[in-house]
Amino acid sequence: MSAATGPAPAPAHVLRPATRADLPAVLALLADEEAVVDPTTVVVTEAYERAFAAIDADPRNEVLVLLDGAGAVVGCLQATYIPGLGKGGAERALVEAVRIRADRRGAGLGRTLMAHAVTRARSRGCALVQLTSDKERADAHRFYAALGFARSHEGFKLAL
Rank of each mutant, 00 (worst) to 15 (best):
Asp38Pro: 14
Asp139Phe: 07
Ala93Cys: 15
Pro24Asn: 11
Val42Gln: 12
Leu160Ala: 14
Tyr48Ile: 00
Val37Thr: 13
Leu85Ser: 06
Gly148Ser: 08
Pro17Leu: 07
Pro39Arg: 10
Glu49Ala: 14
Tyr81Ile: 09
Ala35Tyr: 04
Ala145Cys: 08
Ala28Val: 06
Arg120Ser: 13
Ala146Asn: 11
Gly106Phe: 06
Thr40Trp: 04
Ala150Met: 09
Arg104Ile: 03
Phe156Gln: 05
Ala146Phe: 00
Arg60Gln: 11
Ala12Trp: 02
Val43Asp: 15
Ser2His: 12
Asn61Ile: 08
Val118Ser: 03
Leu64Ser: 09
Ala127Pro: 01
Arg104Ser: 06
Thr132Arg: 08
His116Trp: 02
Val26Tyr: 02
Glu46Cys: 07
Thr40Lys: 12
Thr19Gln: 08
Leu23Arg: 01
Asp58His: 10
Glu33Ile: 12
Ala115Gly: 15
Asp139Val: 05
Asp139Met: 05
Arg124Phe: 14
Gly125Lys: 11
Ala57Phe: 06
Arg105Pro: 02
Glu154Gln: 13
Gly110Gln: 03
Ala107Cys: 14
Arg137Ile: 06
Thr41Glu: 15
Leu27Asn: 05
Val74Asn: 00
Ala97Tyr: 05
Arg105Ala: 04
Arg50His: 10
Ala146Thr: 11
Leu113Glu: 01
His116Ile: 01
Leu85Cys: 05
Val63Thr: 11
Arg124Asn: 06
Glu49Lys: 05
Arg60Glu: 04
Arg60Asp: 07
Thr19Pro: 00
Glu46Ser: 12
Gly148Pro: 03
Gln78Phe: 06
Asp68Lys: 04
Ala115Trp: 03
Ala140Ile: 03
Val95Met: 02
Gly106Ser: 04
Val43Asn: 13
Val36Gly: 03
Asp103Tyr: 14
Ala102Lys: 07
Arg120Lys: 05
Ala138Phe: 14
Leu147Glu: 03
Ala90Val: 04
Gly89Trp: 10
Thr45His: 08
Glu33Gln: 12
Glu154Pro: 01
Thr5Arg: 14
Arg111Asp: 03
Ala54Lys: 08
Leu77Asn: 00
Tyr81Trp: 14
Ala72Gln: 08
Pro59Val: 13
Arg111Tyr: 01
Ala97Lys: 07
Arg122Ser: 13
Cys126His: 00
Arg111Lys: 15
Val42Ala: 11
Glu91Lys: 14
Thr40Cys: 04
Leu147Asn: 00
Lys157Ser: 09
Ala28Met: 04
Phe156His: 13
Pro83Asn: 07
Ala31Pro: 10
Asp134Phe: 11
Arg92Leu: 11
Thr80Lys: 03
Leu66Ser: 02
Pro24Cys: 09
Ala72Leu: 05
Leu29His: 02
His13Glu: 11
Ala146Tyr: 07
Leu77Cys: 12
Glu49Asn: 09
His116Thr: 01
Phe149Cys: 04
Leu147Tyr: 02
Ala97Gln: 10
Ala107Glu: 15
Ile100Met: 10
Arg137Tyr: 10
Gly6Met: 08
Gly155Met: 12
Ala146Gln: 09
Arg60Ser: 13
Val95Ala: 02
Leu128Cys: 12
Thr40Ser: 15
Leu113Phe: 08
Glu91His: 15
Ala150Leu: 12
Leu109Gln: 04
Pro39Gln: 10
Leu77Ala: 08
Ala90Arg: 13
Gly69Gln: 05
Arg137His: 12
Glu46His: 12
Met1His: 14
Gly148Leu: 05
Gly89Arg: 04
Tyr81Ser: 03
Leu23Met: 09
Gly110Met: 05
Cys126Leu: 09
Ala127Val: 05
Phe143Arg: 01
Asp58Asn: 15
Asp56Cys: 09
Gln130Gly: 09
